[in-house]
Protein backbone atom coordinates (compact mmCIF):
# COMPACT_ATOMS: atom_id res chain seq x y z
CA UNK A 1 0.00 0.00 0.00
CA UNK A 2 1.41 3.37 -0.97
CA UNK A 3 1.65 6.32 1.41
CA UNK A 4 -1.22 8.76 1.70
CA UNK A 5 -0.87 11.46 -0.96
CA UNK A 6 -2.47 14.82 -0.34
CA UNK A 7 -4.49 15.89 -3.38
CA UNK A 8 -5.12 19.60 -3.87
CA UNK A 9 -6.88 21.64 -6.52
CA UNK A 10 -5.38 25.02 -7.30
CA UNK A 11 -7.89 27.19 -9.14
CA UNK A 12 -8.48 30.80 -10.08
CA UNK A 13 -12.15 31.67 -9.74
CA UNK A 14 -13.43 34.83 -11.33
CA UNK A 15 -12.09 37.05 -14.03
CA UNK A 16 -8.64 38.33 -13.10
CA UNK A 17 -5.75 36.89 -15.09
CA UNK A 18 -3.00 37.15 -12.49
CA UNK A 19 -1.98 33.51 -12.18
CA UNK A 20 1.68 33.90 -11.18
CA UNK A 21 0.88 33.42 -7.49
CA UNK A 22 -1.28 30.36 -8.16
CA UNK A 23 1.47 28.80 -10.27
CA UNK A 24 4.14 29.48 -7.63
CA UNK A 25 1.98 27.87 -4.95
CA UNK A 26 1.09 24.92 -7.21
CA UNK A 27 4.75 24.30 -7.88
CA UNK A 28 5.64 24.57 -4.19
CA UNK A 29 2.95 22.06 -3.21
CA UNK A 30 4.20 19.65 -5.86
CA UNK A 31 7.73 19.99 -4.55
CA UNK A 32 6.34 19.24 -1.09
CA UNK A 33 5.11 15.88 -2.41
CA UNK A 34 1.46 16.74 -3.00
CA UNK A 35 -0.56 15.92 -6.11
CA UNK A 36 -1.77 19.24 -7.44
CA UNK A 37 -4.59 19.50 -9.95
CA UNK A 38 -4.17 22.83 -11.69
CA UNK A 39 -7.36 23.94 -13.38
CA UNK A 40 -6.33 27.34 -14.72
CA UNK A 41 -8.01 30.69 -15.14
CA UNK A 42 -11.59 31.93 -15.07
CA UNK A 43 -13.24 29.11 -13.18
CA UNK A 44 -16.80 29.38 -11.93
CA UNK A 45 -17.69 28.11 -8.44
CA UNK A 46 -19.58 25.26 -10.14
CA UNK A 47 -16.52 24.23 -12.15
CA UNK A 48 -14.33 24.24 -9.05
CA UNK A 49 -16.76 22.21 -6.96
CA UNK A 50 -17.25 19.71 -9.77
CA UNK A 51 -13.49 19.27 -10.21
CA UNK A 52 -13.08 18.85 -6.43
CA UNK A 53 -15.68 16.08 -6.50
CA UNK A 54 -14.31 14.19 -9.49
CA UNK A 55 -10.74 14.42 -8.25
CA UNK A 56 -11.69 13.54 -4.64
CA UNK A 57 -9.34 16.20 -3.31
CA UNK A 58 -8.41 16.90 0.30
CA UNK A 59 -8.04 20.63 -0.18
CA UNK A 60 -8.92 23.46 -2.55
CA UNK A 61 -6.60 26.44 -3.06
CA UNK A 62 -8.22 29.55 -4.51
CA UNK A 63 -6.29 32.52 -5.84
CA UNK A 64 -8.25 35.73 -6.22
CA UNK A 65 -6.91 39.20 -7.08
CA UNK A 66 -10.08 40.74 -8.43
CA UNK A 67 -11.73 41.81 -5.19
CA UNK A 68 -14.65 39.47 -5.87
CA UNK A 69 -13.71 37.04 -3.10
CA UNK A 70 -16.82 37.69 -1.01
CA UNK A 71 -18.97 36.92 -4.07
CA UNK A 72 -17.03 33.82 -5.19
CA UNK A 73 -15.98 31.95 -2.07
CA UNK A 74 -19.29 31.44 -0.20
CA UNK A 75 -20.90 29.64 -3.18
CA UNK A 76 -17.86 27.36 -3.48
CA UNK A 77 -18.18 26.38 0.19
CA UNK A 78 -21.90 25.76 -0.23
CA UNK A 79 -21.43 23.63 -3.34
CA UNK A 80 -18.75 21.52 -1.65
CA UNK A 81 -21.12 20.92 1.24
CA UNK A 82 -24.04 20.14 -1.08
CA UNK A 83 -21.86 17.54 -2.84
CA UNK A 84 -21.05 15.82 0.45
CA UNK A 85 -17.52 17.21 0.58
CA UNK A 86 -17.65 19.30 3.74
CA UNK A 87 -14.37 17.65 4.80
CA UNK A 88 -12.49 19.44 1.99
CA UNK A 89 -10.35 22.28 3.36
CA UNK A 90 -10.47 25.58 1.49
CA UNK A 91 -7.47 27.92 1.39
CA UNK A 92 -7.48 31.38 -0.16
CA UNK A 93 -4.59 33.47 -1.49
CA UNK A 94 -4.55 36.95 -2.99
CA UNK A 95 -5.36 40.50 -2.09
CA UNK A 96 -7.91 40.20 0.70
CA UNK A 97 -8.69 43.13 3.08
CA UNK A 98 -8.37 42.38 6.81
CA UNK A 99 -12.08 42.73 7.56
CA UNK A 100 -12.89 40.18 4.85
CA UNK A 101 -10.31 37.71 6.18
CA UNK A 102 -12.31 37.46 9.41
CA UNK A 103 -15.58 36.88 7.57
CA UNK A 104 -13.98 34.23 5.38
CA UNK A 105 -12.52 32.35 8.33
CA UNK A 106 -15.89 32.57 10.04
CA UNK A 107 -17.75 30.91 7.16
CA UNK A 108 -15.31 28.02 7.12
CA UNK A 109 -12.24 28.95 5.08
CA UNK A 110 -9.22 27.17 6.60
CA UNK A 111 -6.61 29.84 5.84
CA UNK A 112 -6.09 33.14 4.02
CA UNK A 113 -2.68 34.17 2.64
CA UNK A 114 -1.82 37.65 1.45
CA UNK A 115 1.22 38.94 -0.45
CA UNK A 116 4.51 37.95 1.17
CA UNK A 117 3.16 34.73 2.66
CA UNK A 118 5.73 31.95 2.78
CA UNK A 119 5.01 28.80 0.78
CA UNK A 120 6.39 26.79 3.74
CA UNK A 121 3.57 28.18 5.89
CA UNK A 122 0.94 27.23 3.32
CA UNK A 123 2.37 23.72 2.93
CA UNK A 124 2.48 23.19 6.69
CA UNK A 125 -1.06 24.51 7.16
CA UNK A 126 -2.46 22.22 4.45
CA UNK A 127 -0.68 19.20 5.94
CA UNK A 128 -1.97 19.93 9.41
CA UNK A 129 -5.51 20.60 8.25
CA UNK A 130 -5.75 17.54 6.00
CA UNK A 131 -3.82 14.90 7.90
CA UNK A 132 -5.14 16.11 11.25
CA UNK A 133 -8.69 15.67 10.02
CA UNK A 134 -8.32 12.12 8.73
CA UNK A 135 -6.65 10.45 11.70
Amino acid sequence: MSERKIRVIVAKPGLDGHDRGAKVVARALRDAGMEVIYTGLRQTPEMIAEAALQEDVDAVGLSIHSGAHMALIPPILELLKANGQEHVKVFVGGIIPDEDIHSLLEIGVAGVYGPGSKTETIIQDIRTAVLGSTT
Binding site: R30, A32, G33, M34, I37, Y38
Partner: peptide
Protein backbone atom coordinates in the same frame (compact mmCIF):
# COMPACT_ATOMS: atom_id res chain seq x y z
CA UNK B 1 5.04 12.39 -10.72
CA UNK B 2 8.24 14.12 -9.69
CA UNK B 3 10.88 11.44 -9.05
CA UNK B 4 12.36 13.66 -6.33
CA UNK B 5 9.42 14.85 -4.24
CA UNK B 6 6.80 12.30 -5.26
CA UNK B 7 4.46 15.21 -5.92
CA UNK B 8 2.84 15.98 -9.23
CA UNK B 9 1.35 18.87 -11.14
CA UNK B 10 -1.68 17.56 -13.00
CA UNK B 11 -2.62 20.10 -15.65
CA UNK B 12 -4.78 18.26 -18.14
CA UNK B 13 -8.02 19.81 -16.86
CA UNK B 14 -6.85 23.24 -18.07
Amino acid sequence: SSPFSGGALLGDRI
